[in-house]
Every structure is written in C-alpha cells, then in structure tokens.
C-alpha cells in the first residue's frame, strides 16, 4: 500500500516535472537551456585550460578534466534543482503548502521532480561528451568502456546526489529565495574537493581527508574508470584513489552514500519540524 502510494507520487511528481521543465511550448528556450548552456559552460573551461597550459587538448589530463567536468553537471543540477523546486513551488506557484499537506511522501515528490532534471541533464552530459570526443579529441573508446562499472556508478552516484538534494531541500524550507548561497557553497566544495577537474592529490593533506569522506570523490573516480579506462591507466601521477580496486571503490561509494542517506534524512526531518514550528511552509519572501 505504502509502496504503491510512493510509486504513484513519484510518477505524478515526474509528470509534473516533465510538464514544467520540458517546456515544449517554447522548444527554442528549452534547447538553449538544456543543450547549448552546458556546452557553452564547458567551452569556458576548455578555453581557460588552453590559456593556462598553452597546450593542446589531446593530452590524457585534458580527457581526465573534460569527463569530470561533464559529469559535474549532474552534481550542480540535482543539488540546485531540488532547492529550486521547493522555492518555485512555495513562492512562484504557491503550491508548496498544498503538496505538503497532501498524504504523500514528500521524499518521493522530490525524487520524482529530480528524476526529470536528471533526464534533461543527461542529455546535456551526453552532448557535452560527444562534442568533446568529436571536436576536442577527448579519449573515449567505446570498445574499451567498462559498461557495468559505468552503469553501476551512475545509478549509485545519482541516487546519492538525490539524497544530498533532499537535505538541501529541507534546509531550503527555512531559507529565503535568495538563500541559494548554501547550495553554491556545497556545489563549490564538491568542485574543489571531489576531484572534478584535478586529482585530489594536489590538495593539502587535511583537504584530502575531507575528499575521502565525500561520495562524489568516489563517484568521479568510478565514472572515469568506467568511461575512460585508458586515460586512468596512463595518467602520470596518482588520482589518490588508485590503490582501491573497482570493488573497493564501489563499496566506498556505497558506504558513503548510505552514511549520507542517514545524515540527509536527519537534516530533512529536523528542518521539516522547524519549518512547521516557525510556519515557513507557506511563507513567501517579502522584500
């Protein structure tokens, strides 16, 4: 019964997300937001890379960086997306309280809405990778891809991002519209500490310790091992996680994901309680 109700909520939320985000009434805007924007964002990074290294794009390190950057889109999108859903429902559509008092699992509502974001972001990630391979010579060889590893890493990693999004969603019950700072902070921490564009080994020792607590660090490594095994094998210097076997790596990802699940649920429940105590569910920002 509860499972059926959760599935239904997930489906409805996903349907709603699709109606709202895949705004086909304006395909032009949709294409810009979901496809052109991510590629443009990537090009800025590529350009900076070229200026700094005054080098070429066909190095192993460039491929390492490019793939990390492409998958980081998921991190930013899911984390921002959940918070955005809550702010939008509350302040723009003013429907948050209606959804909130409905007899549904709010988690499922969030996950349903996030699923659509993930689907749309996936398109951006795919096109960015395609662009990298075709235009910039990023080293991805389809025959060499470790598909099972990649698939498992993607599933676990995206679940983990949704879970972290939940905690941020709870916090955004309590913050105003302009309270995006927390998300930017969290996303920024991951960008720097999780080995997105450079290996964590260039970080100071204490920062590396933090890196090893973050699931995203393991996720980045797993995705790269799956997608570009040759790059990972040939990279000069260490990514910091090379001593872990694939199995150990996935276990580390699983364990840190589960740990974050408990942390996130705790944060969400606490924030939910505070929101009810302070009456923030139907509260709108007044300037």
């Amino acid at each position: 019964m509860a499972v059926r109700s959760d599935l239904r909520t997930f489906k409805n939320a996903a349907w709603l997300g699709w109606q709202m985000e895949a705004n086909w009434t304006d395909p032009f805007l949709f294409v810009i937001y979901s496809i052109i924007k991510p590629i443009a964002g990537t090009l800025i990074l590529v350009f900076m890379y070229l200026v700094i290294t005054s080098g070429a794009t066909n190095t192993l390190f460039f491929s390492y960086m490019y793939v990390g950057n492409a998958f980081y889109m998921y991190v930013a999108d899911v984390l921002f997306g959940v918070t955005w859903v809550i702010h939008d429902d509350r302040e723009h559509y003013m429907t948050l309280k209606q959804v909130y008092i409905a007899p549904i699992s709010f988690y499922m509502y969030i996950f349903g809405r996030a699923a659509i974001r993930i689907a749309i972001t996936s398109m951006g990630v795919f096109l960015t990778l395609l662009f990298g391979v075709l235009v910039l010579g990023v080293d991805i060889n389809l025959a060499a891809v470790d598909w099972p590893l990649l698939a498992l890493a993607l599933v676990l990693g995206l679940a983990c991002l949704c879970i972290m999004g939940l905690a941020l969603g709870g916090i955004s019950f309590l913050t105003a519209k302009h309270g995006q700072g927390i998300n930017e902070g969290v996303a920024g921490v991951f960008y720097v500490l999780a080995g997105v564009i450079f290996p964590i080994t260039i970080l100071p020792g204490w920062a590396q310790t933090v890196s090893r607590l973050l699931p995203v660090t393991y996720w980045m490594e797993a995705v790269r091992r799956g997608l570009e095994p040759a790059v990972m094998a040939g990279l000069p210097g260490s990514t910091g996680l090379q001593s872990l076997s694939n199995l150990q790596l996935m276990l580390a990802l699983l364990v840190s994901t589960v740990a974050f699940l408990f942390i996130s649920l705790g944060i969400f429940k606490y924030a939910d309680k505070v929101a009810r105590r302070k009456g923030k569910i139907d509260w709108t920002t007044t300037y």
Binding site: R8, N12, L16, Q19, N23, Y93, T95, A102, P103
Partner: peptide, 20 residues
C-alpha cells in the same frame, strides 16, 4: 496558486492523484 503551465483540469487532476 496553481501550476501556471498546466491546464485547469491537469492541475486539479494532479492533486487528486496525490490522494489516490
């Protein structure tokens, strides 16, 4: 309140689905 991008019927239907 209401989801502006949905039709009136869709908006009402969606909420009814939250209640099974």
């Amino acid at each position: 309140s209401g989801y502006g991008l949905l039709t009136v019927r869709e908006n009402l239907w969606m909420f009814s689905q939250f209640y099974g």
